[in-house]
Amino acid sequence: MQKIYEPQNLLEGELLLGMLASEGVQAHLTGEHLLGAAGELPIFGLLGISVDNDQAEHARALITAYNAALPVSGDEPDNFPDVLVC
C-alpha cells in the first residue's frame, strides 16, 4: 500500500475516495482522525489517500484527470457565469 495523494481537506479526500471507488479502485483515507489535533500537529500533510501498489498508477491518473476537469459549458446559471452550482 502506498500514499498517492495528499488532499487539502477532509471534503476533498472524501470526494476523491468516492470517485476512486466508482472506478473500482479501493482506497483508504489516512489521518482523518488527526484533524481534531490541528493545534498540536502541523497543518499540512495530515491527510493522505493510499491504495494498493498495483493500483497506484491508475489511481494517480484518475485523480489527475479529476483535478483537471472543467465544468461542462452551459451548466452554469446565467446570474453566476463560470460557476458550477451542484
Rank of each mutant, 00 (worst) to 15 (best):
V72E: 04
E6A: 08
V25G: 10
G74S: 05
P71G: 00
P81S: 04
F44R: 04
I49H: 08
P81N: 05
A38H: 00
V72N: 02
P81L: 04
P71R: 02
H28Y: 15
N79L: 11
Q8A: 14
L35I: 02
D54S: 09
E12P: 13
I4H: 15
L20P: 15
G18Y: 08
T30W: 12
L20C: 09
A68Q: 07
S22A: 07
H33P: 06
G45M: 09
N9M: 10
F44L: 09
D75W: 14
A61I: 03
D52A: 11
L17N: 13
E14G: 09
V25T: 15
G48T: 02
A65N: 08
A59W: 00
G18I: 03
V72F: 06
A21T: 15
S22Y: 10
N53D: 07
G24H: 14
H28P: 14
E40Q: 06
L62H: 01
H33D: 13
A37V: 00
L29Y: 13
L29I: 05
A69M: 05
P77C: 04
D82T: 07
L35N: 00
L34N: 03
E76A: 04
I63D: 00
L47W: 12
V25S: 15
I43K: 01
I43H: 03
D78N: 07
L29G: 08
P71E: 03
L46V: 04
N9D: 09
L16A: 13
V51C: 11
K3F: 06
Y66G: 00
D54Q: 12
M19V: 14
I49G: 07
P71H: 02
D78T: 07
E14I: 14
N53W: 08
S73I: 06
Y66P: 06
I49A: 08
A27D: 02
L70N: 12
Y66M: 03
G24M: 14
L20M: 08
D54L: 15
Y5T: 07
N53P: 12
L34F: 01
L47D: 14
V72D: 02
G36C: 00
S73E: 09
L29H: 10
L62Q: 02
M19A: 09
V83R: 11
G45T: 05
A56G: 11
G18F: 14
P81Y: 06
E76M: 06
D52F: 08
S22R: 09
I4N: 07
L70K: 05
L62E: 01
H58E: 04
N9P: 14
A21N: 10
Y5P: 12
A27K: 03
I4T: 11
P71T: 01
F80L: 13
L11E: 12
A59D: 01
E76Q: 08
G24S: 13
E76R: 07
L17Y: 09
E6G: 12
P77A: 05
D75K: 05
E14W: 15
E6R: 14
T30C: 09
E12N: 13
E23H: 12
S50I: 05
A37P: 07
V51E: 07
A59Q: 02
N79W: 15
L41T: 00
D78V: 06
Q26A: 08
I49E: 08
G39W: 00
S73L: 11
A37N: 03
H33Q: 14
E32Q: 13
Q26C: 08
S22D: 12
K3T: 13
I43G: 01
H28D: 13
V83T: 13
F44C: 05
D82E: 12
N53R: 06
S73M: 09
D78W: 11
E14K: 15
